[in-house]
Every structure is written in C-alpha cells, then in structure tokens.
Design a protein around this nucleic acid. Structure first.
Length: 697
DNA sequence: AAGGTTTGTCATTGG
DNA sequence: GACCAATGACAAACC
C-alpha cells in the first residue's frame, strides 16, 4: 500500500485540503456567511458526486439515487475513508491543545459523524469520544477570562440563526424525535453558538488570523481543531451525532445488515457517502439549502432580487465583505424570522449606557463573520473599541427600544430655553456624537490637504481634536469604533425606526435635521471604513461635527439671517463654534454663489454661442439675398441695355437716318419726359452737376 | 506625466 | 458700515 509513500502523502494532503476546505465552506454557508473558496476547491459538484476521480473520497456517484446500499468504488474509497477518518482523528488529537470555535467543529462533525455511528469501535467513534470525553484541556488555563457570560447580541443571533434553521429543517425532513430536537435546539443550538461567538471575538483567536490568511490551505486548519476546554460542544456533538445516526439508520434500512460484517472502516466510509448522498438527494433538501441561503443572504436579495440557488458553489463562491456579511445577517434576522427583532430589542435593551459589558455586546457584532476569516484586516477592527462610543450607541439603542425618537433623546440633554425646533445639542446626541468622534479623526489630515486653511480654524481645530480624542495613533481605533457604531445604528434604523421609506429627503420634516442628514448621508455612505465615509462629507461638515456644532451645514447655510443670528445668540456657543459657524455659512453661501455664477457664466456663454450661430445664419441669409439682388440688378441692367438699344434702333433723325447711340443719349427729365441729347452736352451737364455737388458738399 | 475640467475657496467689488 | 451677491483668481482633486 505504501509502495509509493510520497505519492500517498501528496494524495492524503490533497484530500486533507479538499475536504477541509469543503467542510469549512459548508460551515460558512451554514453560518450565513459566504467565502470565496472556488479558487482553492475543485467544483463542489465534483467533490460531492465524485466525477473527478482525483478528488473522490466516497463513491457518491455509485450511490446516487440508489437506496440499495453502497458498492465498492474502483479506487477503494472505503480504505480512503478509513484512513481519512483515522488521519483526521489523529489530527484532532494532535491539536487537542488548541481551541476552535464550536461552529466549525459542528460543521466538521456534520460531515464525519455518520461514519462513526455504523462502527461503534471505529475510528470515528474514537473521534466522537475525543470530542466528548476529553476533559478541559490546557487551553482553558491558557486563556482565562474568555468564558465571559454570553450576552445576547445581534451578531450572535445572526450567526446562530442559520444553524438552528438548518437543524430544524433536518429534523422536519428526517423525522427526528421531538425530544431530541427540542433538547438540541433549545439547550445547545442557540446559546452555545452565541457563547462561542462571543468567546471567539474576545479571544482574538489566533486561528482567526490563520484562517484569514490569504492562503486557502491555511484557512482550512481551524476546521480540524477542537476546543477541549468546553463541555457544551460535546453535548452538542453528541446530540447531533445521535440525530445523524438515527437518520442514517432510517435511510439505510435493512440493507445495512449486509454490511455489518464488513470492516468498520469501510462501513463508516460508505455510511458517510450514503448519508451525504441521501442528504443531498432528498427532494426537500433544496428547499432546506435555499432556506439557509435565504436566511443568510437576505441582504443580498435586497439588491439583487434574484432567487437563491441551492448550488453550493454559488453559495460559497460569492464574495462578500465582512461588514456586508454581518449586516446581511442582521437584516436577515430582522426580516426573516419573527424572533430576531425581539432579540435585537432585547440586546439593545441590555446594552445600557455604563454597562461594562456594553462594549462586549457590540463587539460581538463582528464575530459572526470572523468565523469566515475572509478578511484579515477586518478582524483588526475589533481590537480597539472605545467604550464611550458604545455608551452612545447604547443610548441610541435605548431610545430606539423605548420608542423614543432620537431627537427626543437628544433633547433630554438640551438646554431648556431652546425654543428652536432645529436646535439639538449634538454633544449628547447619539447620532451626531458618534459621528463627530469620527469626523475629528480625518479632519486633521483633510485640513492639511485643503488648499486654503485659515490659521484660526486650523489652530482651533487642532485643539479641539485633542479634546475630542482624535489623536494620531488612534485613528484606526476610531475608525473601527465609528464603523461599528455606524453599522449598528444603521441596522437599528432600518429594523426599528425606518418610518421614512416612502419619503423623499426633501419631504421629510425639516426640523429633525439629524434624521434628514443621517438618512441622506447614510444612503450615500456604503464604504466599510470611516475614512471612506468621511470622504463623502464636506470639510465644513467634518468641522461642524468635530466641533459638535448642533446644526447641519445645510441648516447653517440656508437659514435666514434672522434665524441664524438668533441661533447664534440663543445657543451657548463658544467663540470658536461661532466663528466656524459663520465661516461655514460664508463658505456655503459663497459656494452656492460660485455655482450660480458659473452657471450664469455658462448660460451666458451658451447664449452667446447661440447668438453667434443665429448671426451666422442671418449672415448667410443676407449673403443669399445679396447675391439674388445682384443677380436681379444685372438682369435689370441687361434689360435696360436691350431696351436702350431697341430705342436707338427705332430712333431716326430729321433726315430719317438712324441715330448713333455713341453720339446721343437718352435723358430723363424730372417731369418724366425723355429727350435725346447729344453725349457731349450730356457729359458737360454731368460735369456741371458733379461740380455743383462737390461745391455743395 | 501633462493638460483640461470641476469644485471649493478667498479676495474684491458693487448694490 | 454691515451684509450679501457676483465674480475673478487660485488651488486641489479628478479625469
């Protein structure tokens, strides 16, 4: 068997990578997040159906649509399965000191467990026992403090949703007992995944980094790791394995007896293959997969509106960003299942300002996609979140949960004598406060890049930036912070308080400027990071936010003078704020004036061009008329000459001789009479007339 | 990389 | 004199 050990090693390595990536991809699809593994995997169809012998682990194609039982694959896949299971078991045991998210482990067992059921003493069974019975390993002591109490949060619910849904579907289709289902679902399914995600997010698990490596091979490694320091996953696995075993027994029926005498390993391999084949060939499976996909990708459906395909390659192959995936899960939970919005509300309620766990709650927004490990840089976004921002976000969440309008919440902090409906003290406004922290970051660099920068503005902003906390080294920190707050608020807005879907921005109420500006800006802001978001804001907008000016730039600019002056006087604004507000107004008006001026200039230019064109047309017309007149004049001259000649031909002198036209000419008198005058006399009279004209002139 | 366009801003002027 | 609109000029960003 080992006549060619090098080739066997490569073969094992190939299978190792392939099935690991496949399991990882299935896991990610179950978790509701997609990752592009197409470049690392052969077509999923080939892997599953075995059309490519190079990747065939199990004779799926020979078992396809057959219930009679497995048959031996020409390449002896039973041995492959045996060694595969054995090797995986060794891998798992060898990696016992490492910790791995339970979600991934669950998916790994989904693929592996049926094999062990057939052979109680088989290697897969040993694997199960390893996962179940191993006491908490050294990892529990290596990473203390990770076992924080699981807090419900948005990201967790999003992550656990597909898994629960999948299990529920499987239970429905395969006829699982109600007891087992309820136990699995209620006790282990959701809470376990939530805690796992929470734990993973707080750990900064190095497996994430490894999984997020651009190398697809490394991305497979965490799948093969096992968390030994927790016993709950074992329970989960046990129940799930039992369910799968029941399924396998139900599917194999009596034909299974003929294989009981066979080698356990081969039987396990065939069981896996048959279970997979049956699982995939179930007529309702497509619905299940579609449901899974629809749950995890509702957000994508919003943009694409295309039906989801159950094809796993599509599910895995689509590229999706970290924030998009998280946000998609959040939206999907809010739209697809009734319980999810409730969870969101509860989560937001639990996120009380000042709660030390509030930061954790929002930090948990991201680990749902951390399991995907699709983006290593995004994982760094979790590292340094400011608790103050979470307090502000939690305040917003509280307001949303309690049914208050954010405007009302912000007015709680507003000075009592403010009679302006527009006035909001954004220093306490959750929305504007969270944004202002961000804007103070990029403001400094933008200021330097700006062409003109008044000294007073620069200096004052620098000082205020320090007050706000936008120091240089913390740019990334605030970027992450704002990012999380932005997405969390966006999700909350969309789920809970989107009352303006049918309204255009200009149809909204003018007074809650924050709503207007936020909705308008949020529609433009889709970039994953704050720098990109702030790039959509003008310099004055960033200045206003950095100084916590409680008015939007549009308000400041378009406000009437009286209202503007009253605003400056009624609000306790610092000199810097007043100066900046006046500058904003001046620049804003000048900007509009410049735009109008350029528009007018352009209109003038266009009008002049039209005039030029019209004049050209008129010129051509006149030239044509001139040519026609000249032509007519020449025609008239010709006629006159003809008439002249005809007249002289008919004239006769006193002797009856013809009159020479060179010696005589026709002269028209003023009374209309015509006389025949000798030319010399006619010329002398003409000379006299010309002289008289010259003298008169 | 050079050149054209767009846009924001400042300085100035006139109403 | 303050305010504002208009406009030339400049610089940065963008194409």
């Amino acid at each position: 068997m080992s006549s060619r050990p090098g080739r066997d090693t490569m073969k094992d390595l190939k299978k190792y990578m392939t099935e690991g990536l496949l399991q990882f991809a299935i896991l990610l699809s179950l978790a509701g997040v997609r990752v592009d593994l197409d470049s690392y995997l052969p077509p999923i169809r080939e892997i599953i159906l075995g059309t490519s012998s190079a990747y065939s682990q199990i004779p799926f194609h020979s078992l396809r649509d057959t219930w009679g039982g497995p048959s031996l694959h020409p390449k002896s896949p039973d041995l492959d399965s045996f060694f595969t299971a054995r090797r995986l078991l060794d891998e798992v045991r060898a990696l016992g000191d490492t910790r791995v998210p339970r979600t991934e482990l669950s998916a790994w067992l989904v693929h592996t467990v049926p094999a062990e059921d057939a052979a109680e003493t088989g290697p897969a069974s040993a694997l199960l026992s390893a996962g179940e019975e191993d006491p908490p390993g050294p990892s529990s002591s290596q990473q203390p403090g990770h076992a924080t109490p699981s807090q419900p949060h948005i990201g967790t619910s999003a992550t656990s949703s597909p898994g629960d849904y999948t299990k529920e579907k499987q239970e429905d289709k395969l006829g699982y007992s109600e007891d087992s289902y309820s136990y699995l679902h209620k006790d282990n399914g959701k809470a376990e995944l939530e805690e796992e995600v929470t734990q993973r997010s707080e750990e900064g698990d190095p497996s994430n980094t490894a999984a997020s490596d651009s190398n697809g091979i490394r991305a497979e490694l965490p799948v093969l790791q096992i968390d030994r320091n927790t016993t709950e996953p074992s329970l989960f696995f046990e129940e799930f394995i039992q369910l799968l075993a029941q399924t396998e027994n139900a599917l194999e029926g009596t034909s299974e007896n003929s294989f009981q005498s066979a080698e356990p390993s081969s039987r396990s391999g065939n069981s896996v293959g048959e279970l997979w084949q049956d699982f995939l060939s179930l007529p309702d499976l497509n619905i299940t997969l579609e449901d899974i996909q629809s749950i995890s990708n509702t957000n994508n459906a919003i943009s694409t509106s295309a039906p989801f395909s159950a094809h796993l390659t599509e599910a895995i192959g689509q590229d999706i960003g970290l924030q998009e995936a998280m946000f998609a899960s959040t939206l999907a939970d809010g739209s697809s299942e009734d319980q999810r919005p409730e969870n969101l509300l509860q989560l937001n309620t639990s996120a009380i300002p000042g709660d030390p766990l509030s930061a954790t709650n929002l930090t948990n927004l991201f680990p749902t996609t951390d399991n995907n490990s699709t983006n290593s840089t995004n994982q760094d976004l979790l590292s340094g979140l400011d608790e103050n921002v979470f307090d502000e976000i939690n305040l917003m969440s509280l307001a949303l949960e309690e049914g208050f309008d954010p405007l009302e919440v912000s007015q709680l902090f507003e000075e009592p004598d403010s009679d302006s409906g527009l006035s909001l003290n954004s220093s306490h406004s959750p929305t504007s406060a969270s944004i202002s922290d961000t804007s103070s970051i990029t403001f400094g660099e933008e200021e330097g890049a700006a062409g003109y920068s008044s000294d007073s503005e620069s200096t004052s902003y620098d000082g205020l930036e320090g007050a706000v906390g936008g120091s240089g080294p913390e740019i990334n920190k605030f970027c992450q912070m704002d990012d999380s707050s932005y997405y969390s608020e966006m999700s909350l807005h969309n789920v809970h308080h989107n009352h303006t879907y049918n309204q255009l921005p200009n149809q909204m109420e003018p007074s809650p400027e924050h709503h207007y500006s936020w909705s308008v800006k949020s529609s433009k802001i889709r970039s994953p990071c704050v720098n990109a978001m702030d790039k959509n804001l003008s310099r004055d907008e960033r200045r206003a936010k950095s100084l916590r000016i409680p008015f939007s730039v549009d308000e400041i600019v378009s406000m009437p003078v009286e209202m503007f002056n009253s605003m400056l006087t009624k609000h306790y604004l610092t000199e810097t704020q007043v100066s900046v507000i006046r500058d904003i107004r001046r620049r804003g008006k000048n900007k509009v004036a410049a735009q109008n001026c350029r528009k007018r200039k352009l209109d003038v230019i266009l009008n002049l061009e039209d005039d030029v064109n019209q004049l050209k047309v008129q010129k051509e017309k006149l030239l044509k008329e001139q040519a026609q007149c000249s032509k007519s004049v020449s025609h008239m001259k010709q006629k006159l000459n003809d008439l002249y000649r005809d007249v002289f031909n008919r004239l006769r002198d006193e002797q009856g001789r013809p009159v020479n036209p060179n010696q005589y000419a026709l002269h028209c008198n003023s009374d209309g009479s015509i006389m025949v005058v000798p030319r010399r006399l006619f010329k002398s009279e003409q000379k006299k007339d010309t002289q008289k004209d010259k003298k008169q002139k």
